[in-house]
Design a protein around this nucleic acid. Structure first.
Lengths: 234, 234
DNA sequence: ACCTATTTGTCCGTATGTATT
DNA sequence: TAATACATACGGACAAATAGG
């Protein structure tokens, strides 16, 4: 019946199982050995099917570990009211964050310039991973002027949300003042956190948020997973 | 020396010969047998390199005949947008463009949806390279609805400017309706045009421009050189 | 910190099929 | 028809990265 090559049939079968969520997003496919057993073919025939799926972006592979189902592309809106949580919710997904660093330190020159403070000042450094559902979509690293928000660290710890924490510190609203976007290659740490391949492209954004008076309150650098995140500016 | 796999080195070598036109567009590559002899590897190792080139769109193969250098300069994904000229000037540099394609053709489904026209319609396809001074900074590919602007092709040829050409067609002003940005890796054609390394990151933007009534007039895809271009939203 | 088993990646070899010349 | 050239499929061996004890 099927004039298609063996490997193509296998690729189609696996695609169906992925589309129907029998193999959910992020899940590991059976090993090449298991698949060759199941389909009764040589391992290389399975590999050709898997290679095709990877080239189509349906899956990605990690040597020594396995082949995994890629996440669907995520849209991330970029505007003057950019909020991480709301963005993810709008996409029908559940946002969460994992904190990697939350501590005060002296600010750098670049940070001082962006926040319009002096170089001697202390800042709160907040760094971590952003998730949509269970998929890491980006790394963030923000600094806030400590003298303006002495209690911000505790507030972030308590509420696990920058927006809520800032409101507890008297900032009822803030705006995105500027965003600079460029494309870079991921390094080992980033690719590990984002579960992508070393050398996959990243969207790097540098942004400044201000209060409604135009005073800068946050300077942030974020790296979004290039393969699955799209920034939307409307 | 090279920690790269054999097949990757072969792919790079062939890419070089294609880029330098030692193997010109449309020409047939040596046979798999000849290449395996030349590189001293198994035929399958050569095949892996050729398979990669084909997946990158650099070549295409015909069973029983041979492997040929693709003649389609940029089969998919290339693009642009305008108002970029002003940005370049603001940065104290001189903008210019080189046209690669300027011709009418049937629109694709995606283009029809973006321009809010039917799939049978003809569009003007304008594709080329944007320069700042003498440095290529991006590739653009735009389509315009031909039935709305029947004289646009000649106007672009005459004035070498989309903005001026559109004004000759009655569009005195237009604005960007939406822009979606993501990071991708450059392929052989793109890296060649932009004079960057194969695999360097690119900023890919998809945008729609509308007239002041909100009717879409242009759909464009652009690829900006990741290492040197930053998009700024303020 | 180390070892081992697992898993994917690379490379070679052989045979056969299918389309082109 | 015959020779050529790419496509598919099988097989084995080892390397490299990972995961788990």
């Amino acid at each position: 019946m099927s004039k298609l090559p063996l490997w193509k049939n296998i690729a189609n079968a696996l695609t169906e199982e992925i589309k129907s969520a029998q193999i959910p997003i992020g899940a590991k496919l059976p090993t090449e050995a298991e698949l060759s057993q199941r389909f009764g073919v040589n391992r290389h025939t399975v590999r050709q099917a898997l290679s095709f799926l990877c080239s189509e972006g349906v899956t990605w592979s990690k040597r020594g570990s396995g082949v995994f189902v890629s996440d669907k592309p995520t849209n991330y809106k970029l505007g003057d009211r950019t909020r991480f949580s709301q963005n993810i919710k709008d996409a029908g997904r559940t946002p969460s964050r994992k904190t990697l660093i939350l501590q005060s330190r002296l600010c750098t020159e670049k940070e001082a310039a962006a926040l319009n403070i002096n170089t001697g000042n202390r800042v709160l450094h907040y760094e971590g991973i952003s998730f949509a559902d269970l998929t890491p979509i980006g790394l963030f690293s923000s600094v806030f002027c400590l003298s303006k928000f002495p209690n911000l660290e505790d507030a972030i710890k308590e509420h696990n949300s920058v927006t809520i924490a800032l409101s507890k510190c008297g900032v009822t609203d803030y705006k995105r003042h500027s965003t600079a976007v460029k494309a870079v290659l991921s390094d080992a740490v980033q690719s590990n956190h984002l579960r992508i391949k070393l050398g996959d492209p990243l969207l790097r954004t540098e942004s400044v948020n201000t209060d409604l008076n135009g005073n800068p309150i946050e300077f942030g650098i974020a790296h979004f997973s290039g393969p699955i995140v799209t920034l939307n500016y409307t």
